[in-house]
Design a protein around this nucleic acid. Structure first.
Lengths: 192, 192
DNA sequence: GAATTTTCTTATCTTTTGTTAACGTTTTTT
DNA sequence: AAAAAACGTTAACAAAAGATAAGAAAATTC
């Protein structure tokens, strides 16, 4: 039942039975319906989720409008990382884009594991490095590429599933532009 | 001689003498003159630096032009983190903006320490988390704030030293705009 | 399956941003 | 100290992006 999470973790570190058993009792399976929330702006996020099925969007609110800045898919962790790390209320919300099945556990448990086990501490480092790597690539893209180039990059990436499932105005936000601009970019592409 | 680095590390983890002694033999003090490089695009970055004095810029080249995207100051680590993590050639260069005094050590040594000592592994996690936090905040700014808002934020931040020492066209790049646009923003501010 | 809502595109207008170039100032080099 | 290079501002024009609204298509709800 929890094996997809185990497989994910083992992409980072080899887990002995005794290590896995430290986490196992704290795992729960939950379901979040489409349009319901995993984490809400203003509330501290205290859980880590692993998406077994479904997808979610990460967005913040500005001037009353929602701006989607990230997506989460199957076989990936989902959390308001910043809120977990700082313990402060989250600046963003995470909402299910479809009915979603998750494995969740408290961040406090993970912190506990960091102290108890060398393997888990290493996992914590590798995950943080993995996240930093992703953010750095994303940020470089925002600074050095035009919106059009970013869209092309997105189309050519392994994130192509984004395109298939996600409404376009969310993708526009992800690229840092308006839906109208994205529509124009798509239009231009057709003509070439 | 190396105490500023020790103090920096101890902001993350308490270091016993035996932990510090693992790193100490690998530390070197180096000087990089203004306009010389710490790391170069196309070459793997294999060293971590700690700036004792001076400052540096992090930039990439696009269409033959340099785009500055980050700055490093005293009492902070400097490295091409992405290149260190992946082992691949760096996409960016790091150049001294003034004569700079650094303490450096090989990334390979740090990785070795991660395996040898629980304290160092924890340090690696906390540093990675710290970097991820910074990147996330920066990226959120790029996506949810206008260039003008970002400039105001920069002025009001603890990074105000950036403003004092750094040529404005570098700051413009940092904000993701052209120098001309930044000049207009500044002009508008005067009139208010 | 009809009605409603959501999503995407297109058009128009406005604002912002980029580009290029000129000019004065400051800094660096020699 | 003079010459050269780098820097910041401004202006004029072009290109891109935002705002708004209208309409068509698709998806959802009832």
């Amino acid at each position: 039942m929890f094996t997809p999470l185990l497989a994910y973790i083992e992409k980072f570190v080899p887990l002995g039975n005794e290590d896995w058993d430290l986490l196992l009792p704290h795992l729960r399976e939950i379901f979040i319906q489409k349009n319901d929330y995993f984490s809400r702006e203003g509330k501290p996020c205290k859980e880590i989720g692993f998406i077994v099925e479904g997808c979610m969007r990460h967005f913040y609110t500005k001037d009353g409008e929602e701006k989607t800045t990230y997506f989460y898919f199957e076989n990936n962790l989902v959390t308001d990382y910043l809120s977990c790390l700082t313990g402060k209320p989250g600046l963003i919300s995470i909402e299910a884009l479809s009915d979603t099945k998750l494995i969740v556990f408290p961040y406090s448990v993970l912190m506990q594991l960091y102290s108890e086990s060398k393997v888990w501490e290493r996992f914590g480092r590798l995950i943080a490095e993995y996240i930093a790597k992703g953010l750095e690539e994303r940020m470089t893209g925002l600074l050095m590429l035009s919106a059009e180039e970013r869209y092309h990059q997105l189309l050519g990436s392994n994130k192509q599933k984004i395109i298939e499932r996600i409404p376009q105005h969310f993708i526009a936000n992800y690229l840092g532009i308006t839906p109208v601009s994205l529509s124009r970019i798509r239009n231009r592409m057709l003509k070439k």
